[in-house]
Simulated assay, not measured.
Amino acid sequence: MIKNEKIKASEVQLTGVNGEDLGMMSRDEALALAKQLKVDLVCTSLMSSPPPCKLVGASKAKQEALQDKQKARKQEQGAKVKELRLTPHIEDHDLETKRQQAERILRAGDAIQFVVRIQGKEGAQAKALLESLLRDLKHAGSPRTGIQLSGKQAAVLVDPQ
């Protein structure tokens, strides 16, 4: 982010503190106006001529820069896969809690792997449980894999939308 005297362009397209368009003006006039209002002059893009600039309060400019950095870092890392473990005999209230937790994770942009631990002949119950969870979370995510029954567990991977 380029601020104040570091802006090298001779003319800028200026936007006010409240988003109002102040038009084209010289960099020196824009800097004088920024000092008069006790705010910073921030260049939003160097790709156009004249560069668009806006008047922003000092603390707000720092906060925006920090948020941009955090977004870039999160996009760089990509989605994580979080695992939620269940049993076929889960109580209704506990299942609702797990469903809400899964919805929050999916909305945050991370994937979920549901794992249901099975003993003996509980495979059909585990599959039915996972199918109902997938139905309930259809609006927040879509399954990447089908329901996989293997030995002591049933699993399904759900991606955010």
Rank of each mutant, 00 (worst) to 15 (best):
Q119E: 15
A154V: 01
I147D: 04
E11N: 11
P88H: 07
V39R: 03
L95H: 09
A154P: 06
G23F: 05
S132A: 06
Q70C: 05
G19D: 06
E83N: 09
G151N: 11
L130Y: 03
E131D: 14
L66F: 09
A155W: 07
A9Q: 10
K152I: 04
K138T: 03
S49F: 13
K69P: 03
L46K: 08
K6Q: 10
P88Q: 08
E83P: 00
Q36Y: 03
L129K: 00
D40G: 04
G109D: 07
A102R: 04
Q36H: 07
G57L: 09
L31D: 02
A65R: 13
L31C: 00
N4H: 00
S48F: 10
L14S: 01
L14E: 02
T145G: 05
V56F: 02
L95I: 04
A124H: 12
T15L: 14
E103A: 07
R135I: 01
T87A: 10
V158W: 12
R117M: 12
V116S: 01
K71V: 00
D110C: 07
K71E: 14
V158T: 10
A32M: 09
Q13N: 14
A58Q: 15
K98C: 02
S26M: 13
L157V: 02
K62V: 06
V158Y: 08
A61R: 11
V116E: 05
R104S: 14
L14T: 01
E20C: 01
K98V: 00
A111F: 05
L55Y: 00
T44M: 12
R73K: 15
R144N: 12
L134N: 07
Q101F: 05
L106Y: 06
L46N: 08
L31I: 00
A140F: 10
I118M: 11
P160R: 09
E103S: 08
V17I: 14
H139Q: 13
S26T: 14
R117A: 12
K54M: 11
E29S: 09
E5G: 02
K82Q: 04
K74V: 06
E11M: 13
A140S: 15
K74W: 09
H93T: 06
A108L: 00
M24Y: 10
H139C: 01
L33K: 06
A34K: 03
L55I: 01
Q63E: 15
R107H: 08
L134R: 08
L22M: 10
L130N: 04
H89D: 15
I112H: 06
H89S: 13
E11W: 13
Q36E: 11
L157Y: 07
E20R: 02
K121Q: 07
R99K: 10
A126L: 03
Q119A: 09
E83G: 05
S150I: 05
T15H: 12
K35V: 01
G19P: 05
L14H: 00
D28M: 13
G109W: 13
A111S: 15
H139A: 09
I112R: 03
V116L: 08
R99L: 09
S26V: 04
Q75A: 12
D28K: 13
K121R: 08
I7W: 14
Q70W: 12
M24T: 03
K98W: 03
L22V: 01
E122T: 03
D159Q: 04
Q148D: 09
Q36P: 01
E122R: 04
Q148C: 08
G109P: 07
V81I: 15
P51F: 06
G120T: 09
V115R: 08
E96L: 15
L41W: 07
A128N: 13
M24S: 11
A34E: 05
L66S: 12
L41D: 02
